[in-house]
Design a protein around this nucleic acid. Structure first.
Lengths: 359, 359
DNA sequence: ACAGCGAAGTCATACGTATGACTGACGCCA
DNA sequence: TGGCGTCAGTCATACGTATGACTTCGCTGT
C-alpha cells in the first residue's frame, strides 16, 4: 500500500448508471456467462457450443433486460446493413406507391429493409429542392434501386452527393444495356396493342398527350406508338407536351382539339393526362367515346373512377418493384441479373369506340 | 539486428489490397497525417487545430481516393443514426404519399433520413402478412413517427418485434392525450363545416359511408358528424360500413339507396368511398347533385377528376407529415411537443345542392 | 493409466470513426 | 533564462457486436 491513497477511481465516476440501453455485456453479466456466449445464443449458432441450460439462462436474461442488439454495431461488425435505397420520382403518384410496396415485400422476404427517397430531379421541379439531394446520404446502405431517371444523371449524383459512387445498382424502367441491369414494364407491347386496337376501330387522326419528362419509359411509349403506325397509310398524328397534371393536360388537349381537322382519338401517355383530356373534351360539349376516343396508360385507380371508364394499359407496378428488388439482391449475392421485361396488359373499357362517321 | 530474421510479417499478408472501400486511415496515410486529423477535417472542427495547408492536403487525398465515411461506424461512435421510421397504413394511398413527402422534407431540413414501413395491421389485411411485422427491425433507428393506428397496438408491436420498446414516438391522426404526443388534422372542424353546409342546403335524410377501419380519424369524423346534427330535429341517418375500395363502397351505397325513404345526401368518410357512391348513384340513373348530393373527405386527386367535381374536406397531408416530423425531432431534442391540430378546409364543389323538392 | 476427443465456454480482436487528453515546438514577455 | 500560452497535431480509447482461436474438463477406449 502506498502511503498516499490512490487517486479518485475513475471507474467510480463512470459507475453512475445512465439510462442507456442494455448491451450484450449486461445480459452476459446477468446470465453469468461471457459476452461471446450471449452473442452465440442470439445468432442461433449455439448447437454444439452452448448447453441448453445456458441458452435458457441467456434468453431469460435478455427478456428481463429488454435487450435489443445495437444495429449500428452489427452493421459495423458485419460490414452490411441489409438496407437498400429506393429512388422514385414521387410517392404521391400511387404507381410508385405500388412499386414501393412490391419492393418492400420482396426485400422483407430476404430480410432486407428499404429506405425511400424521391429522385432529386423531380424533387427540384416539383417544389423547393432539398438542402442535400440525398438526405439519406448518412444512412448506411448496401445497394440502390432507382426508377425513372437517366442512368448518367443518377450515377453522377451518386458520385457527387451520394453515399457511395459504386454501390450495386439496378434501374427500373430505364434503357436496357445502358449500364446497370434493368427491370422494365414492357410498355412497348402495351402501346402496340393499344394503337392496333384504335386502328382496328377505324381511327386515323390521332392526338398525342405526352408529358414533358424525358425518361426512358415515355420515350419507349412514343417509339412504340410510332412503330405501330408505321406502314399504315393515311394516318396523321399531332402531339402536345404537357406538365404531369390534370390541369395542364386539359390545356394541351384543348390545343389539339382546336385544329381544323381535330383528332378522333386522344392517346395519352398516362391516366392522369387522360383525365385532363376528359375535362377538355367535356368542356367542348363532346361525348366520349361517341365523338372522340381517349386512352390512358398505367391503369391507376382513376381509370375506373372517371366516366366513362378508361381504356388503358395496365402496368404491373407491384411486380415491377418486387422483380427489381429481387434482381438487386441477386446482384448483391454476386449473380449478375438479366435485363427483365414484365408484360403489361391492354384493358379495353368504354372510352374507345369507332370514330364518328363524319370524322 | 537479431541473428534470426523476424517471423513472417503478418502485415505483409494483410497487405494484399482487397477491393474494399477506403477508410479514413487510408486517407491519412496518403495525406501524411494521422487518422484523427482526417476526422477533424471532415467534421469541420479544424479551425485552431489544423493548418489550412493540411486541410487542403486531407481534402485532396479524400477526393483522390473517393473516400466516403463508413456510416455504420459513425452511428456506433455517435450513438445516433439520424434516421426515423415512418409507419403508414399504405403508400398506395396518395394521402400517405403526401404525408411521407412532408415528413421527409422536414427531416431533411434537420439532416435526418426517413425509413417507411406500412403498419402491420393494414399490411395483414391487405395481402399476405410480412414474415416479420417490422422488416425494418434491423435498421438502426432514433425514433418513430406512426400514423393511423391505435397507440396500444403499436406500442405492443414495438415492444415485441420492434427495434426498441421505448423509442421516442409521435403519433399522427391519433387520439390526443392517450400517450405519446400527437399531431392531427382537425377532422372535427372540417366535418362540422361539411355537415352544416348540407343542413343549410336543406338536407335532412343522410346516408353515411364509413370504412371498416377503427382508427381515431374515422371515429373523430363520425363523432363530429353526430355532434353537428345534434339538436337538429327531423334528421335521420343510416350508416353503411364498407371496405376501403371503390367497388365495395358502391355496394354499400346501393344498400343505403334501397331504403323506402332513401337519403338525399351521402356523406362519405373518404373521397375513394365517394367515388364508389358515384357509381351506385349513376347505376340507378340518378343525377348528382340534382337528385342526390354526395360528399367526400381528404380532397385527393380523384375529387376533381370525377364528374361532377366533389365537395369534400381538404386535409393538409403534406403539412401533417412535416409537422409530425418536426414534433418528433423536437422530442428527440428533449423538448416535449404539444399535441397539435392542423386545420382542414371545406371545399364546396358541384356535388352538393339542395335536395329535390319532392325529397 | 493415459492419450485423445468432444462438449462447453471464454478470450481477444477487429470493424471505422470521433474525441478528450496529451505532446512538442515555437514565440513572447518578464 | 525560464515560464507560459498558443498552435498544430498525435495518441489512445470507446462505441457494441461477432467470431476464429484457444482453454478447460470430463469421458472413453485401449
Amino acid at each position: 500500500m502506498p502511503p498516499t491513497g490512490p487517486p479518485a477511481d475513475p471507474a467510480a465516476a463512470k459507475h453512475e448508471r445512465t439510462a442507456t440501453r442494455p448491451t450484450s455485456k449486461d445480459v452476459a453479466k446477468l446470465a453469468g456467462v461471457s459476452q461471446s456466449t450471449v452473442s452465440l445464443v442470439h445468432a442461433g449458432k449455439w448447437p454444439g457450443r452452448v448447453s441448453e441450460r445456458t441458452v435458457r439462462a441467456v434468453n431469460e436474461a435478455s427478456a428481463a433486460l429488454g435487450y435489443r442488439p445495437n444495429q449500428a454495431a452489427r452493421h459495423l461488425r458485419l460490414g452490411t446493413t441489409r438496407t437498400v435505397l429506393l429512388v422514385v420520382p414521387a410517392l404521391t403518384n400511387p404507381f410508385f406507391g405500388a412499386v414501393h410496396t412490391g419492393a418492400s415485400e420482396a426485400a422483407a422476404l430476404r430480410d432486407f429493409a428499404v429506405v425511400v427517397f424521391p429522385s432529386p430531379v423531380e424533387a427540384g421541379t416539383e417544389r423547393a429542392p432539398f438542402a442535400s439531394p440525398f438526405a439519406a446520404a448518412h444512412t448506411a446502405l448496401d445497394a440502390v434501386l432507382a426508377s425513372s431517371m437517366a442512368y448518367e444523371s443518377l450515377a453522377e449524383l451518386l458520385a457527387t452527393t451520394g453515399p457511395d459512387p459504386d454501390l450495386p445498382l439496378v434501374m427500373l424502367d430505364s434503357e436496357p444495356g445502358a449500364g446497370p441491369p434493368t427491370v422494365n414494364a414492357d410498355v412497348a407491347a402495351g402501346m402496340h396493342d393499344l394503337t392496333t386496337h384504335l386502328l382496328g376501330l377505324g381511327h386515323r387522326r390521332f392526338g398525342r398527350l405526352v408529358p414533358d419528362i424525358d425518361t426512358w419509359t415515355f420515350t419507349a411509349r412514343e417509339n412504340a406508338y410510332r412503330a405501330a403506325l408505321h406502314g399504315m397509310p393515311g394516318t396523321r398524328t399531332t402531339t402536345a407536351r404537357t406538365a404531369f397534371t390534370v390541369h395542364d393536360a386539359a390545356r394541351a388537349a384543348h390545343a389539339l382539339l382546336d385544329a381544323a381537322h381535330p383528332p378522333t382519338a386522344l392517346v395519352c401517355d398516362d391516366d392522369v393526362l387522360a383525365a385532363g383530356a376528359y375535362k377538355a373534351v367535356r368542356a367542348r360539349g363532346l361525348r366520349i367515346p361517341e365523338d372522340i376516343s381517349v386512352t390512358g396508360f398505367d391503369d391507376l385507380l382513376i381509370a375506373t373512377v372517371i366516366e366513362p371508364e378508361l381504356t388503358t394499359v395496365r402496368l404491373p407496378a407491384h411486380r415491377l418493384g418486387a422483380a427489381g428488388m429481387s434482381a438487386l439482391l441477386d446482384l448483391l449475392d454476386g449473380r449478375r441479373p438479366q435485363d427483365t421485361s414484365l408484360p403489361g396488359e391492354l384493358v379495353i373499357r368504354r372510352s374507345t369506340a369507332p370514330p364518328p362517321p363524319t370524322g
